[in-house]
């Protein structure tokens, strides 16, 4: 990642700034993931469930992301759609050990993809199969199948196993996202 960063500066290409929307059910690990992506000295010790939204920023592959972390509580999910129009990418976090609510996650994902502000826009969708270290956690491919990702044709998507608490898998996923953004907006010269 660091190498890519340097490469891009050498090549004279500047930073890109994008807005990424972090969605997912409550207690799936959205805020924890963003907290782990911060530099170690800025991390919060204890996280409370998000009310409304927080925003945070991180960088990867020469792209600086402004992440909007929206509350996933059932009564706040209706507010997700207010952010759709300005999102350049979506990170969808799923608790892969919460078998019960995978259908709810699928429902919310489908609602999001069918929203007029989302439908037809080619924005990358990154799915984090979070808490993959938990007992009985599903594998990322199973998560993809349960969420019905194979039916998404208008957006590039990627599933990535992750552990938001330790940060495992986060860098890979975010690097994919950065690559997608760069590919979409920087035609190879």
């Amino acid at each position: 990642m660091g190498l890519l960063d340097k490469l891009s500066t050498w090549l004279g290409k500047g930073r890109m700034e994008v807005t990424v929307l972090v969605l997912g059910l409550d207690n799936s690990g959205k805020s924890t993931m963003l907290n782990t992506l911060r530099p170690p000295e800025q991390r919060a010790q204890h996280l409370m469930p998000t009310v409304a939204q927080n925003h945070d920023s991180f960088q990867s592959g020469g792209v600086s992301f402004t992440a909007w972390d929206v509350s996933g509580a059932p009564r706040h999910r209706a507010l997700w759609e207010r952010h759709y129009r300005r999102a350049h990418a979506v990170i969808f976090v799923v608790d892969s050990a919460d078998h019960l609510r995978l259908v709810v996650a699928r429902e919310e994902l489908e609602l999001m993809l069918a929203h007029p502000d989302m439908c037809g826009r080619r924005i990358p969708l990154l799915v984090f199969a979070n808490k993959c270290d938990a007992p009985h956690a599903l594998a990322p491919m199973q998560i993809a199948a349960v969420l019905g990702l194979e039916r998404i044709t208008d957006k590039p998507w990627h599933v990535c196993a992750s552990i938001a608490l330790s940060g495992a898998g986060l860098a890979d996923g975010v690097a994919w996202l950065a690559r997608q953004i760069r590919d979409a907006h920087l035609p190879k010269s």
Binding site: M16, E17, V18, T19, W68, R86, H88, H185
Partner: peptide, 22 residues
């Protein structure tokens, strides 16, 4: 009203378009 919120965000958040700073 929805436009109110939209305009609120536009003023608050970073710019929409992806910019390249050279």
């Amino acid at each position: 009203p929805f436009e109110k919120i939209q305009s609120g965000y536009q003023n608050n958040a970073v710019d929409w378009e992806i910019e390249r700073k050279n």
